[in-house]
Design a protein around this nucleic acid. Structure first.
Lengths: 274, 274
DNA sequence: GCTTGACTCTCCTCCTACTGGAGGCCGTAC
DNA sequence: GTACGGCCTCCAGTAGGAGGAGAGTCAAGC
């Protein structure tokens, strides 16, 4: 017979835990001195303790363990317990996988935005953009409603998204109310048109080409100034601007944080005919 | 201003939870009626509530959320919180992955054993065994000490194990005390000799071939009877038995459960020269 | 002004699997 | 005599709520 302290050393279970297991009826001492209340464990209990430790490592609850220990003598229903446990664990696993992915995405987005912020000159530049696969929703109304479009794409093609949101503007002039635009998200290869073609989300290749580009830092209602600047640049050089023009949301109100509008970063792109 | 019930509907947070968040100082109502104690939330709190929900979905603790919410106004330390959180989540993810794997392994072993139990005829059979890659520990002593050998292999090559444990017996006769045997575990391709060759664990190909085989059901100390049976069969047919002979532990005392010795299943294999 | 039913309040307990600590009993060694 | 180690019970706390009791409050209908 072991005293609780000795048994604790033998089984690697803390004394507190042994007392707790006794209270819960999971691992009952062989004998309890009715005078002193001292617990004594027979040698055979070591095996039970080992078993409990193993099952706890597999994240079984104490209630399950108690059941397993009692039904264990009978027969072979053990497999069922393990299968149920596997289900439980798989569930948690999936949860954490999702969380981990989301966290990774947020972190890398934030990092990219930070790099872009550092490298930005806020001067008009000329560069080449590649063509890319996009999913887009054509809308008419206020620009501020574009969020609904992004949400719709996210819902249908969420797992294909592979870059920053952009907006295609089809109007020749600035319109407050009935603007024609398209909310777009870049897609990974493999994204395919899903809808029946009721005109909601279309997946297609967006052509690239030579363009003038300007980074705008600040809230969206100050975009006008930057548009003036880039337009002046293009006109000065006699560039012919192709519709639709593009806005790329390098850093805006994210999924989690709305962030500070003064730190929003938007790239304006005018594709030009050469 | 919303009452707690209205705010609950707007934010999809249970009333209980809102009260709890108030108590914890995470989401404090805009105003509390000092007479009635009624909580009232301004519209601006909806955004905060949404943010808290998102962060909870990412498994941040309430304490973290409280900190994030307060430091959020200042600036950009947010990334650090997310990185720490990712670490935490990765840890849990790894834990559950390990558990899930172990559970899968136990379940499939148990299933296999059950199938073997059903299909078993307990008659001597002739069959062909394939050659396989094994890790083995040569030992001298009692058979019952073989557990130490398996443990040693498990420690060094645990992740390569891909089948049932087996025992090679090098003696010509049955020995109680100074038996010569080797505890072996089948290895996946890719397992390579690790040790410096002090003679502990060796990894090598174990040749296959034609053999006579008998399934023994019951405790190990009753193996003798089955050995008698298979030996009689081989002698009768004039087969020449090759050393070492083999025992394959189809079902024995598992990692978790010792199980009922009466249900242990062991295959005896005698390779024969043709 | 009164009643009724829906809301809301505080306070308590419960969940899991322990951990930490206070205060006290028992036996032994010095 | 006392210091020490081992053991006991009981209480509190952890994270993030859920469930419920009993009492007060609000708004609408009569």
């Amino acid at each position: 017979m072991f005293s609780i302290g000795e048994f604790s050393k033998v089984t690697n279970l803390p004394v507190k835990t042994l007392r707790f297991y006794h209270e819960q009826g999971v691992l009952v001492p062989t004998q309890v001195d009715s005078q002193t209340g001292y617990r004594y464990y027979a040698e055979g209990k070591i095996e039970t303790a080992r078993l409990i430790r193993q099952l706890r490592k597999l994240d079984f609850t104490l209630a399950d363990i108690k059941e397993i220990l009692s039904s264990y003598h009978d027969g072979e229903d053990i497999l069922e317990y393990f299968e149920r446990q596997r289900q439980t664990v798989q569930l948690k696993l999936r949860e954490y996988r999702t969380i981990s992915k989301t966290l990774d995405q947020i972190i890398s987005e934030e990092r990219e935005a930070r790099v872009a912020m550092k490298a930005a000159t806020y001067e008009v530049e000329e560069k080449t953009v590649d063509s890319m696969l996009i999913a887009g929703v054509r809308m008419t109304g206020r620009y501020s409603d574009c969020g609904r479009g992004f949400a719709q794409i996210g819902k249908q093609y969420g797992r294909y998204i592979c870059g920053k949101a952009l907006l295609l503007q089809y109007d020749d002039e600035y319109k407050e109310e009935d603007a024609e635009f398209e909310a777009c998200l870049p897609m990974r290869q493999g994204a395919k048109q899903k809808g029946t073609g009721t005109g909601d989300v279309t997946v297609r290749e967006l052509a690239g080409g030579r363009c003038v580009s300007l980074l705008h830092k600040g809230p969206y209602d100050e975009l006008g100034r930057s548009y003036g600047k880039i337009l002046a640049y293009a006109t000065e050089r006699g560039y012919e601007i192709q519709r639709p023009t593009r806005e790329v949301y390098i850093k805006g109100p994210g999924m989690i944080f709305k962030g500070n509008p003064k730190k929003y970063l938007t790239e304006i792109q005018f594709l030009i005919r050469e």
